[in-house]
Amino acid sequence: MTANSPNSGEDRSSLWKPNRQASRRVEMLVKLIFGAFALVSVATTAGIVLTLIFETIEFFGEVSLLQFLFDPQWTPLFSNQQFGIHVLISATIMTTGIAILVALPLGLMAAIYLSEYASLNTRRFLKPALEILAGIPSVVFGYFALLTVTPVLQTFIPGLQGFNALSAGLVLGISILPLVASLSEDAIYAVPRSLRDGSYALGATKRETIISVILPAALSGIVASLILAISRAIGETMIVTLAAGQNPTPGFNPFVPVATMTAFIVQVSLGDTPATSLAYKTIFAVGMTLFLITLTLNLISFWFVRKFQEKYE
């Protein structure tokens, strides 16, 4: 102890020569380096958005907004070009809608089970298992939909075609299930214990506590996870391209081949469409539409969480 005491005799100040000048320079350098890396991601995003904007402006130089919104068909690759984006949007809505119908109830119930009912050991095993599901490549899900789910569905849905929105949507739902379950579980698990205790102390059962206290308290997080899942489903490409087909069909028939926005972009990007042609510029207009939809969803999610998130100490 005496060796460390400041009064141990010898003049200790001579042993302490911090180089404040040098450390300040290093701090500054480190800050610059990290700042530069942070800037890379911002710059990349800005670059992508700018490219989208410029190409989209060029596209609308040749095709009017009215055509884009109201043409009855989507045939930019044919000689009789029509640009009714709703044909692609309806396919995206269909696959996404079916996916959410699968993922929301299953994901939410899984989340409630994991957070409220599962024992510590079950939870310790199940949660990583669920997250492994999230690690399966989407191309595998796509083949699974095309080669397994569709034939099974065809045994009891006679009119179902080889490519269809139903099968793609169902498997898309399975693929986003871990996202919904994991994020909802985080939100439910984060509800303070004191609220559960308060409810039980009034003579509430577990079910009443979950439905009337825990879920409302976790609502903002659950909605945020749902919106993130919708964004993911809208942007998902591989499953819908493989299983729903690439055939732009207007309307909402889940049994026939359709082309989602993402599937169309893949089709044009993979094909030999010349980079200067109007058909090629179309994919940027579609990409822009996709971007605007997900941006809107993210803004809604941001607003919702801000407005409805309960602050607990």
């Binding site: 205790d197 102390a201 009034l202 308290a217």
Partner: peptide, 14 residues
Amino acid sequence: RRRIGMVFQKPNPF
């Protein structure tokens, strides 16, 4: 628990 109520250390309104 319905017949024996409880008030906690930290206020915990729902």
